[in-house]
């Protein structure tokens, strides 16, 4: 099959199979997305970030932990492209290895929080009555709490570590997803196809899992993509406060905190990880905007 005919096959008005229709829809979404240059830029940055995380040991010029006190606080040079920190560790190598930690935190939070939210929101919307009341009241309580403060309190109680930081971020991030999932559920709960499925004898659990969840997913994905940047910033904030990844792990927020003491004389120690955080969270923001245009065309495009 030549390229042209494959394109025609994908864009066909009369798809022959369900698979063709589905692939065609994805392809059209991709075409819209590709038209958005900024979103493509975001995607490229993120692909590079993931590649960097995978090949970190190959890419990093030195070990992220190798100390060399003779070379401490060196400015950026040809030997150390981004300079060295207070223990003489190569900042570039630490940044490259740190991308793994960043991706781990963001990925885990972005998996846990929407799943909790999806579960609570759809159950509340589908069950209605007092279940809805109770679940939504709990959601409101968590929404009323300032997020960062709540995460701080959680980490304080559980003890600072990277796992607890993830847990705290996920526990504070789910309420908006629950609200969203509930709203979606309410609009489809009384749809004809649900009634049809019910008449065919589908139980509540099956209705929920097979018929309601799939329809909530696309709006959740958009929301997750838009929230990623916020998660990165919160995680970096926790790391900066010393409540996330513990030394000597090269977490970007903690690296900024390391450089804070030397900021006036050795600016690069704190500046470089900040640039890394900024680049990545900006990429997520750009990608999220692009995804919203594709997956949620009725949403506002401002």
């Amino acid at each position: 099959m030549s390229a042209v005919s494959r394109r025609e096959w994908l864009l066909s008005d009369a798809p022959q199979t369900r698979r063709q229709a589905r692939l065609g829809a994805i392809y059209q979404g991709w075409l819209t997305f590709r038209g958005n240059k900024l979103a493509m830029l975001g995607l490229i940055i993120l692909v590079l970030l993931i590649a960097m995380a995978i090949f970190a040991p190959l890419l990093a010029p030195q070990s992220p932990y190798a100390q060399n006190l003779a070379d401490r606080l060196q400015p950026p040079s040809s030997a150390h492209w981004l300079g060295t920190d207070a223990l003489g560790r190569d900042i570039l190598s630490r940044l490259i290895h740190g991308s793994r930690i960043t991706l781990f935190i963001v990925g885990t939070v972005a998996l846990i929080a929407p799943v909790i939210g999806l579960f609570i929101g759809t159950v509340a919307g589908f069950a209605g009555g007092w279940v809805d009341q109770v679940l939504m009241r709990i959601t409101d309580i968590f929404l009323a709490f300032p997020k960062l403060i709540l995460a701080l309190a959680f980490v304080a109680a559980l003890g600072p570590s990277i796992g607890n930081a993830v847990l705290a971020l996920a526990l504070t991030a789910w309420p908006p997803y629950a609200r969203l999932a509930r709203a979606e559920t309410l609009t489809i709960r009384n749809a004809d196809f649900i009634a049809a499925a019910r008449l065919q004898g589908a139980g509540r659990l099956r209705l929920l899992i097979r018929h309601i969840w799939p329809l909530c997913v696309s709006s959740l994905i958009v929301r997750v993509a838009l929230d990623m940047a916020g998660i990165i910033l919160s995680a970096a904030g926790l790391g900066f406060l010393g409540l996330g990844a513990q030394p000597p792990l090269p977490e970007w927020g903690a690296m900024i905190s390391d450089g804070r003491t030397y900021i006036l004389d050795y600016w690069w120690v704190a500046a470089m990880p900040g640039i890394a955080i900024f680049t990545v969270s900006m990429a997520f923001n750009l990608l999220g905007d692009g995804l919203r245009d594709v997956l949620d065309p009725k949403g506002d495009k401002s």
């Binding site: 900021i263 006036l264 704190a270």
Partner: peptide, 18 residues
């Protein structure tokens, strides 16, 4: 808005001090 949503506030503060 884009910069505001992407920049870690503590880093911007440090750079401002610098």
């Amino acid at each position: 808005a884009l910069v505001g949503y992407s920049m870690p506030i503590f880093w911007l503060g440090l750079m401002g001090l610098l």
